[in-house]
């Protein structure tokens, strides 16, 4: 990826702006841009969400649940036994070359891997919140595999936060068809998947899925929701993933710079409190959207998703 460039004077302007709490676009250090969110816009997917930050960053997440075999091999027998009773989450993040010139050609490969791995590490563990055991249909045999595919359609900074937000919204939106398990006796178990569109359940533990807050250290201070130019000025980045209860579910530091311990502590605390209020607002939004749909359904009105026909 050819590195995006910034001039020394822009760098200095941003640095001093952060110091005096007026960023280049007039925001304070801890101000987020407006977030535009819509769920359920992809009809073929089990769940989907599109999340945009301000005028820029645009992330589309599609989730598909598919039947698959459980994973049977593990490091040792105990691990294998746990895995045999579990469903799986498979993440994939891709940056579209239309988002930015930097992503053209093979340019985005490393970045895609980084984003995919981050999402995967957070969601595929106890801190991910999802109840993987509930995704298992027949222990040792069949389970649901949740494929989470995120695509970055436009880039104006702060991609990871947007991906996590969209993922949480899409998981809320995901419908898993109900399964009916029948015991045929003599150890044989069969199951049926309900064809009825009304018979579905939500992924258990979607509400415990964390969101991410990226804190960018510029000078001796930190900011959230950085623009691309601010990201170029950033010396070190700290990604804090937080769940509903304000528990830190993961930390990742990137960038070449260093963070001193007192600042690190400060950043984690900021990330925690911001993350918690982000989840609260996000859940309110999801609830509002669902209420609207239910209201429309009750009135027998047509439910229209705007998707890419939206004006804003």
């Amino acid at each position: 990826m050819p590195p995006a460039l910034i001039s020394p004077s822009e760098n200095d302007y941003i640095l001093r702006g952060v110091d005096s709490n007026i960023r280049a676009d007039g925001r304070g250090r801890l101000d987020y841009r407006q977030i535009i969110l819509e769920t359920g816009l992809i009809t073929q997917a089990s769940g989907s969400a599109r999340c945009r930050l301000g005028e820029g960053t645009d992330v589309l997440v599609g989730i598909k649940v598919e039947l698959g075999a459980v994973e049977l091999d593990g490091a040792d027998e105990d691990v294998a036994a746990i895995k045999a009773k579990r469903g799986r989450v498979v993440c994939n993040v891709e940056c579209s070359p239309i988002a930015s010139q930097q992503f053209a050609g093979r340019g985005a490969d490393d970045f895609n891997n980084e984003l995919t791995q981050m999402l995967d590490r957070v969601l595929n563990g106890p801190q991910g919140g999802l109840n993987l055991e509930k995704l298992c249909i027949i222990p040792g045999q069949q389970c649901w595999i949740v494929y989470i595919d995120a695509i970055v359609l436009d880039y104006a900074g702060n991609i990871l936060d947007t991906i996590f937000m969209a993922t949480r919204a899409a998981l809320y939106n995901t419908k898993i068809p109900k399964t009916i398990i029948q015991d045929r006796g003599d150890g044989e178990i069969e199951f049926d998947i309900s064809d009825d569109e009304e018979e579905w359940e939500r992924i258990e533990g979607w509400d415990k899925v964390p969101v991410a807050i990226t804190l960018n250290k510029i000078g001796s201070r930190h900011i959230v929701d950085a623009t691309p130019l601010e990201e170029l000025t950033t010396e070190a980045k700290l990604l804090v993933t937080v769940n509903k209860d304000g528990k830190v579910c993961g930390l990742q530091k990137s960038g070449g710079g260093s963070i001193n311990p007192s600042l690190l502590n400060d950043m984690v605390q900021t990330g925690r409190s911001l993350g918690q209020s982000l989840i609260q607002s996000l859940d309110e939004m999801l609830q509002r959207e669902e209420n609207d749909i239910n209201l429309k359904r009750a009135r027998k009105e047509r439910i229209e998703k705007l998707g890419f026909f939206a004006a804003i």
Binding site: L30, D31, Y32, Q34, I35, I36, L37, E38, S273, L274, S277, L278, S281, L282, E284, M285, R288, E289, L306, F309, A310, A311, I312
Partner: peptide, 13 residues
């Protein structure tokens, strides 16, 4: 430190 979530709006003529 507030977050503002919006729904997309349709275009109108």
């Amino acid at each position: 430190m507030t977050f503002q979530f919006l729904s997309p709006k349709p275009s109108s003529y």
